[in-house]
Design a protein around this nucleic acid. Structure first.
Length: 646
RNA sequence: GCCGGCGUAGCUCAGUGGUAGAGCAGCUGAUUCGUAAUCAGCAGGCCAUGGGUUCAAAUCCCUUCGCCGGCUCCA
């Protein structure tokens, strides 16, 4: 082979010779079959810019803008363009960092005054100019020391700080126009590659995410390979806003907040309270059939007890305290303490274990004011909390049972979820042996079920490792709901024991776990998940009887009475309004069924149901309708819930 | 807690120094109607709260409370 040539292998195995020193871009252009839109490439697996020249035989693969990696590169490059625009418009601005994130990108700036909406528009316009100019994006490398000097001269203190934390002897830069940014790359070859972007919002953010550091201004934006993708994403955001649980909570009259009551405290209106009641009844039944015991503990417990449990030392800033008869009491932020005392109320034998205590426990936590968020983050909430005390050798089995429980319940609600295992953090207590055993039990349970999971190193609680289940909301945000936590300390601190087969005292192991998590949060996620259109078994109003004229009011009243007797949650709309008006209203309230009652129905002694999705059903008797609802409830709950849950 | 924005009728929102507005919802009446809005009239606000500037404040400034978008933290 000619020494002026190199042999390139494409990802599909094809080989082709090219002149030595040719750019990856040209190779891909010659070798590509599809119309893929490449933004970068891999040479022998390593990500590089398209302008990189290839000097030796290599495996070359294009990274297209619609792949995950390609999209990330595109967005990262767009972040650079934004920073360039900001520096042009606000020369005094200092740049911090600007990565690609899940749905776009951001860049942090230190500026004298915060950006306004008008600023965003100006920045966007400037970015469009930069993109239209198709400025080349060039990579350079420099010794780290030299780079530090360079940014010091520019007055870019944040870049200097970043460089000082690096260990690599050389670092890379990317330049487009006059704008130079410290960056690992790769990037698009020229700014013209950005086809569709939008700046979304501006918000404060701490330098390096540390609240002790300076508050910077962060601009969020997003970019897509084409306008269509961007449009779809913006539509998604608009749709998500429509199903925001705070908006739907108001529209469907489910719950509210009041500044007279205080931040983070929910008031449940009749319909919201009814949904909650159904959830709670469902949960009590499900726990009883799985061998849990229902227990109830007080809200106020003496501060001395919180000292003993370690909460006073580790969780005090989140707790509320009060005084009764010169005794200090703490409002419970967790339910475990009374459960511990129930266990300790008598001598336990190994034959009693495992003991599973379940409580719909209402707790209070002093969350920082800025984090409150509708039902998803509140200060008073009710957990479907349980504490399982068992022998170490029962741990595995118990964890598996809980996982089955979680999966079954999530299946009924139809949720997407992700699981994470959090392992031992730096600051923790307990022996390595305990931690290993518990962590293995958690991992083993998930693997035994073939459930994918991520490991979060060092993210566990100080008292034990845990599995967290994250649900996805309408905006694609993750919310922690179910969690399973091992605990070695509380049994220790409360000196819990059981008498083993050998007649000696042994220490039980404890599991904390919730399935829905906080009822408030779960309800919030649920509202967004269903967009307010609850399935029949959960709908606070399952049907609205609508009369055509006043002539049917008496009969409609009898129908409603009959349905209520059969356990149907039905309302009567006998207002003097046109049928269409009443249908529209019930539709907007997302009631599953509308029962039309006109003269025909009175004559036939039946009702004419119309489904929420617009499907018109045959005339039927009230009894047949109830049977239909019963069936629908059972079908969507794996047979668990029928009409008479409340 | 921090940065920024915001708070006007039950709801959605106009009003930016000179007498508080609209639509929907509500009430009253008419209409008695067949699957997403019948018509007319009436009523409804200490412009979140407390203070200040001004002849005059919903409007400008400050305090507190609350909400929204993030950061940090978390079920």
């Amino acid at each position: 082979m000619n020494s002026q040539e190199i042999q390139v292998t494409f990802s599909d195995g094809r080989q082709q010779a090219f002149p030595r020193g040719i750019s990856v871009q040209e190779i891909l252009k010659a070798g590509q079959k599809s119309k893929a839109n490449f933004v970068a490439a891999r040479i022998d697996g390593q990500m590089v810019d398209l302008v990189r020249r290839v000097e030796t035989d290599a495996v070359v693969e294009g990274i297209s803008s619609d792949s995950g990696e390609g999209l990330e590169i595109l967005r990262h490059s767009t972040a650079h363009i934004m920073a360039q625009a900001v520096k042009m418009l606000f020369p005094e601005a200092k740049v911090a960092i600007g990565p690609a994130i899940e749905n776009g990108f951001y860049y942090d700036f230190d500026v004298d005054r915060p950006f306004t909406q008008e600023d965003l528009e100006r920045i966007e316009a400037k970015m469009k100019e930069i993109i239209a100019a198709r400025q080349a994006v060039q990579r350079r490398e420099m010794a780290r020391e030299e780079a530090i000097r360079f940014f010091q001269e520019q007055g870019e203190q944040y870049k200097v700080e970043l460089l000082e934390s690096f260990e690599d002897p050389t670092v890379s830069f990317y330049q487009q126009g006059d704008f130079v940014d410290l960056c690992r790359g790769p990037h698009i070859p020229d700014t013209g590659f950005v086809k569709a972007f939008k700046l979304i919002s501006v918000a404060g953010a701490y330098w390096r995410g540390d609240e002790h550091n300076a508050m910077l201004q962060r601009i969020y934006g997003t970019a897509f390979p084409d306008r269509d993708g961007l449009k779809k994403y913006l539509n998604f955001l608009a749709e998500a806003q429509k199903r925001d649980h705070r908006r739907l909570g108001k529209e469907l009259d489910l719950f509210s907040f009041s500044d007279e009551i205080g931040a983070g405290m929910v008031i449940y209106h009749p319909k919201g309270a009814l949904i909650r009641h159904i959830l709670e009844t469902f949960e009590k039944k499900e726990h009883l059939r799985r061998g849990y015991h229902l227990v109830v503990g007080p809200t106020l417990l003496k501060t001395d007890l919180w000292k003993r449990s370690g909460h006073f030392d580790n969780y005090r800033e989140n707790m509320y305290f009060t005084e009764i008869d010169e005794q200090s009491y703490g409002v419970k932020p967790m339910n475990c303490l009374s459960h511990m005392l129930i266990y300790r109320s008598k001598i336990r034998s190994y034959r009693d274990l495992p003991l599973r205590y379940f409580e719909l426990g209402t707790v209070h936590r002093h969350e920082k004011s800025g984090v409150l968020h509708g039902l998803l983050r509140v200060r008073q909430f009710t957990q479907d909390d349980a504490h399982i005390l068992c022998m170490p050798e029962q741990l595995n089995r118990e964890i598996q049972n809980i996982i089955d429980f979680v999966i079954e319940v999530m299946g009924i609600f139809g949720f997407e979820y992700e699981m994470e295992i959090s392992t031992r953090p730096q600051k923790s207590i307990g022996t390595d042996e305990d931690w290993d055993r518990a962590t293995d039990a958690l991992i083993g349970a998930l693997e035994g079920k073939g459930i994918p999971y991520e490991i979060c190193q060092g993210e566990g609680a100080f008292y034990g490792p845990k599995i967290d289940v994250k649900l996805k909301d309408a905006l694609d945000r993750r919310w922690q709901c179910a969690t399973i936590q091992c605990d070695f300390t509380l049994p220790e601190r409360f000196d819990l024991s059981y008498i083993g087969v050998d007649g000696n005292r042994h220490r039980p192991v404890m599991l904390h776990r919730v399935i829905l998590g906080a009822i408030e949060r779960f309800l919030g996620v649920l509202i967004e998940h269903y967009a307010g259109a609850f399935p029949v078994w959960l709908a606070p109003v399952q049907a609205v009887a609508v009369t055509v004229t006043d002539a049917q009011v008496e009969f409609a009243g009898k129908v409603c009475d009959a349905l209520r007797d059969l356990g149907v949650r039905v309302d009567l709309d006998d207002r003097n309004e046109k049928l269409g008006y009443k249908i529209r209203e019930a539709q907007l309230q997302k009631v599953p069924y509308m029962l039309v009652i006109g003269d025909r129905e009175v004559a036939a002694e039946g009702i004419c149901p119309r489904r929420r999705d617009g499907v018109q059903m045959e005339l039927m008797s009230a009894q047949d309708f109830a049977v239909l609802l019963e069936k629908e409830c059972r079908e969507s709950t794996k047979g668990r819930v029928g009409l008479n849950i409340i």
